[in-house]
Design a protein around this nucleic acid. Structure first.
Lengths: 341, 341
DNA sequence: TTGAAAGCGTTACCAC
DNA sequence: GTGGTAACGCTTTCAA
């Protein structure tokens, strides 16, 4: 293998027979500070030497890391298997790599949030976070992040009107859930169950509130009970739903996510209930993988990929312009009615 | 907000009343080079100043970036929605963040592979790649990567015995497919169809070879035809399978991935074929999302998360130890038989 | 243990 | 346009 003593801007200047300044100017494309012949000689030298600016040196020079950190508070080490999170990361990474920024991802359990390397070393220019755990713990983490002194984007929390460097990026789960509730009423559902994971997510709270608001307008006529599954796993959700269905007779199940909805649907079918005739089932997210259920599930679609992209754009903007103009960015969700309701 | 003029090692030394050397030694935990009292003063100073080593400076100093780049050759910008890739990234990122390395991800279309920022700027210490496109294009990309002069891990290619800095990390798709083929024979399948996407992936080729090898042992008795779907999308696969099923009467379908398998299964059911009675269906990968099909699909399970983790470990090892000991790391796959066959 | 100094590569500023 | 120099923060070496 060729021994790679990377060439520096000095080597380029020497080979091209120009000064350091001229090389920088050519590289930075500051026309009118150099002549045509000099430009050509510099470009040739860069080509033959295979010169590439050393980014560590650039970063030191202008005290930037050109990177964004993304802390994911999740008890599952394989947090990227959650499509919501992988879409956020995908959208964010797409934008960052287009402007030559890099992305540091770290998953951390909610309990260890404040001791995660990524927020302790603090080497990134800005941070994204998605939180989980009880509301007061999440509040604590928001507060912790706000003291980092860097631009922060937090996904899926409600705006706390907190410090000036925090941007909230969320989807309007409440309205989506509200629309879903109204849809179920239209379909004559009377006894509705909301199934949610034990883990607290702000989005889940919002979904429950929206659903209940829609249903409560109908007074005593309609009931809504919440049941909790210890985990979001397929088997656990199925078990919880099965044992509930054996005792009670709801006519609709709203699951906090599509994955949970599929499990609920299967539980019902195995007990002999037909979907949607005997019981309606709906979920949240509408990601690729869950579009393959039979019957196709009614869901509230999340714009997660786009949210990731906007997080990148907004953070970078506030890095150069100072305080962000918009401190609470809300994406609308969309009810997609299918055959399961 | 507090104005953050980050404190340097000099400030710490000054406050603690010790030399720079001593601070470095304490930070680097080189015991026996400093005394107890000095240590305490330094640690206190670090605490009160909130000192954190500047990683750009460290990186410049020892010409490292402490980051790994991951180039994903995929025509879909939302490449992370592919569970195979998101698992690779998850495993890799978990390992890297545990040793305080960061991860640069960039998706790029096969045609633009060599012009992607990430491989042009070359700022990472090592690279991972997953390739797609025709075999000769992939060969070209392997060759291109081998000339980068940095440790490279390539997923899911076959070993080309190429340059010393390339590590191949793959799963044994051929054996998995072979086992699946034998299983289908055991289940009395005679006319088998392999459905694959038009896009070339090395893994898909391996799966086809393994399947055919298993079946060919049975001579003329058993047929195996390959059909191609332009895309991997649910609708496209369903359409292709439907129109095939209307003309021919295979008794088993092997899909190149579970996602395609689900689509194939639905196509069959909609035409009135029962799975597995009238037709058997199997896929590849066995990721979370596809464990929710009804009937549960027979599949060959991929250890993608673990492959990502090992890529990180191996690259980092070869960064410090020079050439890697193992140049071709093969993970075994596992046939998981379920109700769809 | 210490203090001083050099060097990593880039960039900005200066006077010419 | 040039050439020289200083600065970013850290680490190592060398002599004390």
């Amino acid at each position: 293998m060729v021994s790679k003593t990377n060439s520096t801007i000095r080597d380029v200047a020497a080979l091209a027979g120009v000064s350091l300044m001229t090389v920088t100017n050519v590289v930075k494309k500051r026309k009118s500070t150099y002549g045509r012949d000099a430009e050509k000689r510099v470009l040739d030298a860069i080509e033959t030497l295979g010169y590439r600016p050393n980014s560590s040196a650039q970063n030191l020079r202008d005290s930037l890391s050109r990177s964004v950190g993304f802390v994911i508070s999740d008890s599952n080490p394989n947090f990227l298997s959650d499509p919501f999170i992988s879409q956020l990361v995908g959208g964010l990474s797409l934008h960052l790599s287009s402007i030559d920024y890099s992305l540091d991802i770290q998953g951390v359990s909610p309990e260890e949030f404040e001791t995660a390397n990524i927020v302790r070393k603090l080497k990134n220019d800005a941070f994204c976070a998605i939180l989980s755990g009880p509301k007061e713990l999440r509040d604590k983490h928001v507060n912790f992040l706000s003291k980092l002194g860097k631009p922060i984007a937090i996904f899926q929390e409600v705006d706390r009107n907190s410090s000036p460097n925090i941007i909230i990026i969320r989807e309007d789960d409440m309205s989506g859930a509200y629309a879903l509730g109204k849809h179920l009423l239209l379909k004559k559902a009377k006894n509705i169950v909301f199934i949610r994971p034990a883990t607290d997510w702000s989005a889940v709270e919002q979904r429950e509130i929206g659903l209940r608001t829609a249903l409560e307008a109908n007074g005593q006529d309609v009931t809504c009970e919440t049941i909790i599954s210890m985990s979001e796993s397929y088997l656990e959700v199925k078990k919880v739903v099965s044992s509930y269905m054996e005792k009670y007779k709801p006519d609709a199940i709203v699951a906090a996510t599509d994955a949970m909805g599929v499990a609920a649907m299967h539980a019902c079918e195995e007990l002999g209930f037909k979907v949607p005739k005997d019981i309606k089932v709906a979920g949240f997210n509408g990601f690729e993988a869950w579009q393959y259920t039979k019957p196709l599930m009614t869901t509230v679609v999340s714009p997660a990929f786009e949210m990731g992209r906007i997080a990148g754009e907004t953070l970078l903007a506030s890095l150069s312009d100072g305080e962000p103009k918009q401190k609470d960015i809300v994406f609308s969700t969309q009810l997609r009615v299918s055959n399961s309701t």
